Amino acid sequence: MFTCKSVLTELVGVVIALAVVLITYYKWNYSYWRRRNLLYIEPTIPFGNLLNPLKKIETVGVTVRRLYETMKKKKWQHGGLYFVANPVYVPVDLEYIKNMLIKDFQYFIDRGFYYIEGKDPIGAHLFAIEGAKWRNLRMKLTPTFTSGKLKSMFQTLVDCETNLQEKMEAEYKNKSPVDIKEVLGCYTTDIIGSCAFSLERNIFKDDDSPFRKYGKNPNLIPR
């Protein structure tokens, strides 16, 4: 009996010690923006400014937009959030955003997006990758999107829009439900094929198009 009580006492002590360490860890992390004299929305343990994902009240994107609107209503130029225990910086003022994207961009090259380049190469795009890979890809893509080249692409975009309009009208006449994700996916693929590869492929009429097939499932791309 004495042994059982001793073990139980030690177990309770360990649990209490772990709880104290965990709370101290969160408290220290949640003082990150205060230590830097930056306005922030008060977080709660353990999800910070996010809602409990198990309750499925709203998506993360909706939560972030709501928090952003809260900062904007308070007329903050920028502010801090906490995603679980991680501090997140949120620029609100357009001048701050402009500086981050242009003048001070060398300090904001990492996005924090999750991607696996080997299994999902399409997910490893310019807005997700970081560091040296981002710099190399940006150097390759920047000359493609000059104002002159974007103007020359405009008519191609208009031509692709015609295919989209015809598809939507056909679906409307058939009185059938529209899979808008599939329709917009075909439209995007049509634009990429036309602008990037100079191929006039009406993806809406070609159900066996390899562009659309590989776009929907990158794992099918031959290695």
Rank of each mutant, 00 (worst) to 15 (best):
M1R: 09
F2T: 08
C4P: 13
K5F: 15
S6A: 13
T9E: 10
E10S: 14
E10P: 09
V12C: 13
V14D: 02
V15R: 10
I16Q: 02
L18V: 06
A19E: 05
A19R: 11
V21M: 08
L22A: 08
I23N: 06
K27W: 09
R34Y: 03
R35F: 01
R36N: 09
Y40G: 03
P43Q: 07
T44E: 12
G48M: 02
N49K: 07
N49S: 05
P53E: 06
I57N: 01
E58I: 03
R66S: 10
E69P: 09
T70G: 04
M71W: 00
K74E: 12
Q77N: 13
G79S: 00
G80M: 07
L81V: 02
Y82F: 14
F83R: 02
P91Q: 01
E95K: 11
Y96I: 14
Y96N: 13
N99R: 15
K103V: 13
F108T: 07
R111H: 05
R111I: 09
E117D: 13
K119H: 11
I122P: 00
A124L: 02
H125E: 10
H125M: 05
L126V: 03
A128S: 12
I129Q: 04
W134H: 01
W134C: 02
N136Q: 14
N136K: 13
M139D: 06
M139P: 02
L141P: 04
L141F: 13
T146M: 07
L150D: 06
K151W: 14
S152E: 14
S152G: 08
Q155H: 14
L164S: 01
L164W: 02
Q165V: 15
E169P: 00
K173L: 09
K175C: 04
S176E: 15
E182W: 01
E182F: 03
L184R: 02
C186Y: 08
Y187K: 06
S198N: 15
L199R: 11
N202G: 03
I203C: 00
D206C: 07
D206V: 13
S209R: 01
P210N: 06
P210I: 01
R212M: 15
G215L: 03
P222Q: 03
